[in-house]
Design a protein around this nucleic acid. Structure first.
Lengths: 165, 165
DNA sequence: ACAATACGTCAGCTTTGTTGACACTCCAAG
DNA sequence: CTTGGAGTGTCAACAAAGCTGACGTATTGT
């Protein structure tokens, strides 16, 4: 069971295969972010704004602390991004109803419009890649990615996933 | 053929599935870089140093311009990273033999040692993920990632891949 | 009343990216 | 042999986006 030759077909676990997997992740991630980056660079925004917009859209009314946990950045770093988005009228920050210390974050119409532009671009690429591959490959893609996540992030991913109906 | 309901089983192409794919990429990439990041932050290095070290190790004797193309950054940005690596004795820059304008880059023993530490950490995670999934899933993972790359990057990925024995 | 929580902000630092300008070496073509 | 251009390196200046530490305010819960 520990001998890669005797046990089964474990050729996909050779160092060469693993290195190809590493490089595939590197180059694919660049493709993955390329389209939104092109849209964002025309405005005054960057990837950090995209991430904030994505997850606010994903969980409308989310609190600042919750966003902090998902994004894994510091309060100051997020706040800088959030402030510009609020100033620019893309995000609305409402005082919490049950707990007035909290701020519930929402996308405005304008914010939703930008979110659509960004996610459309990303979905087109994802859809093309998924279609080029096929259902079996997509299932494998997802299973490997999920196995690659760290514990806490995987938890958040799964919780977002199940909240997505 | 354009109707997702009638044509075949294209449930994996719904917006919800695509969004899950997008989020999977985001969270998985964070896991993917987490281990090397932990090693690097103890030193004075960052991800940019890792990338340079990786590709110099991958193609010893590569030129600065070649590295520039692969990494997709500016000369100045790469040069800053390269300079510290050379000063610290991890990378050696030799004047080109055929064309003396070029600099051929190599890892020193010390550089190779760091490369091993970094890629070992990354391979452990990749191997665990690959093993958790299985050969079919790994093949799908790779096919989807390759379909997600942009043209020029895919070309470079494939050329690295075929040069890898 | 008091401690803890959620949030915002100020100041300052780091890494990694950018542009623009300039110099040097070398190869190759005229 | 001169000259143009390619490959490389360096300087200055700047921006995005991360970080730490400290502090203030409002609100909540004990």
């Amino acid at each position: 069971m520990s001998d890669p030759i005797r046990s089964e077909n474990l050729l996909y676990l050779t160092d060469e295969q693993l290195r190809q997997g590493i490089e595939a992740m590197y180059f694919a991630y660049r493709g993955f972010t390329a389209d939104p980056d092109r849209i964002l660079e025309s405005m005054a925004y960057g990837r950090a704004h995209h991430r904030a917009i994505h997850f606010i859209n994903r969980a409308p009314g989310t609190t600042v602390t919750n966003l902090l946990d998902i994004l894994g950045v510091t309060k100051q770093s997020l706040n800088r991004v959030l402030r510009t988005l609020i100033e620019d009228g893309l995000v609305e920050s409402r005082v919490g109803t049950s707990d007035r210390r909290e701020r519930n974050l929402f996308l405005t119409e304008e914010g939703t419009a930008l979110e659509h532009r960004l996610s459309d671009a990303q979905r087109v690429r994802m859809r093309t890649a998924f279609r080029e591959a096929g259902p079996e490959d997509v299932a494998g893609f997802r299973r490997v990615l999920e196995a690659m996540m760290e514990g806490e992030m995987k938890r958040q991913y799964l919780s977002l996933r199940e909240s997505g109906k």
